[in-house]
Design a protein around this nucleic acid. Structure first.
Length: 320
DNA sequence: AAGCGGCGTTACTTTACCTCA
DNA sequence: TGTGAGGTAAAGTAACGCCGC
């Protein structure tokens, strides 16, 4: 298994060959994937809708029409990825979320939880509608109607915000009686989050059709799905950076230790070399030769004790 | 020019922890 | 001493606005 680490551009990823495996085990990363890099996803979206709208706001307010159109075309598939999306990996760094059924095990046309009837949704929200629980077409219709009542222009950049002020999560709306002008952030349900998570594993960038299809299935607005994927990509990138940083730190420590070890080894080799060099320059008089067999031997005392052999001649007593 | 993704930021929610009556 | 309420910091995340491609 190779550990492919990259910071951003996967085309320039560096591969830690031999040590990566043991490193990942040694450092307890515990990845189940074969690569760590987040691929630089190239998306051309050849099948992208040619929207006639000229602004995002117009796009938002026509989203319900696109929802209808996409409903017949969108399918979530586990057998093949989106056409032009290339992804080196699907890493789930947020593994704290419990695993749910694979996406292909879920019904395609209906989200696996029953959205309450419209009346119930209204009834559960004293101050407004739970946008999570409303069918998208109804939600958008209510949104538009409310904006008309409120006198908001359709091109208002706060149109999305205003809808969320009305359509906060049930938990928040139950408690919020103040009706302040600040935006209200809805909380996606566990089921919605899990479903989006599974979709993200399939393709971390959506084309418009996929976006609309997901939005319809989850009873969210396309903009919400889009934002969720943007945030999810950001989280993935952040986690990846943290993991990379941690791994590089470990690598740095390992290399430092290796460097220290090599320095020590080098020092020992130098010492040894100095010692050998010295013995190579021993005076010839320290060598003894057996006259009969002509075997040459050195003086054992001088070699074993590293004692300068010249001292043996200080007494003027050659060994012969 | 429009659309979209990345990025930084804001606003809000949730959770854990602490203090105090 | 145990407990519940209230405050607060930190973490998580939905949403926004800007910019570049």
């Amino acid at each position: 298994m190779e550990l492919d680490l990259s910071l951003g551009d996967s085309s320039r990823s560096c591969v830690f060959m031999e040590k990566s495996h043991e490193a990942s085990n040694q450092f307890g990363f515990g990845f189940n994937t074969t690569t760590l890099s987040i691929g630089q996803v190239t998306t051309k979206q050849s099948d992208q809708h040619q929207h006639e709208e000229t602004t995002k706001e117009k796009h938002k307010h026509n989203s319900h029409l696109e929802d209808q159109e996409a409903a017949n075309e969108y399918h979530i598939s586990t057998s093949h990825k989106a056409d032009n999306n290339t992804s080196l990996l699907q890493l789930d760094f947020l593994s704290h979320t419990p695993f749910v059924a694979p996406i292909n095990a879920l019904p395609l046309q209906s989200f696996p939880w029953n959205p309450p009837p419209f009346e119930n949704a209204v009834g559960s929200c004293p101050r407004g509608l739970d946008m999570n629980m409303l069918p998208v077409a109804v939600a958008v219709a209510v949104e538009d109607e409310a904006e008309e009542v409120a006198g908001l222009s359709s091109s208002s950049p706060n149109s999305t915000t205003s809808s969320f002020q009305r359509g906060s999560s049930s938990r928040a709306s139950d408690e919020d009686e103040s009706g302040g002008s600040t935006r209200k952030k809805l909380r996606l349900s566990k089921e919605q989050s899990n479903f989006l998570e599974e979709s993200f594993k399939e393709h971390n960038i959506l084309n418009p059709k996929q976006k609309l299809g997901l939005a319809k299935q989850l009873h969210l607005r396309p903009r919400q799905v889009e934002v969720w994927f943007q945030n999810r990509r950001a989280r993935t990138k952040l986690k990846q950076t943290e993991v990379d940083c941690e791994y590089l730190k470990k690598c740095c420590e390992t290399l430092k230790e290796e460097n220290r070890r090599l320095h020590k080894e080098l020092q020992e080799l130098r010492t040894l070399k100095t010692s050998n060099t010295f013995s190579m320059h021993l005076p010839a008089t320290t060598l003894t030769m057996c006259p009969s067999c002509e075997n040459v031997s050195t003086n054992s005392n001088s070699t074993t004790n590293n004692e300068p052999t010249t001292s043996k001649f200080q007494h003027g007593k050659p060994r012969f």
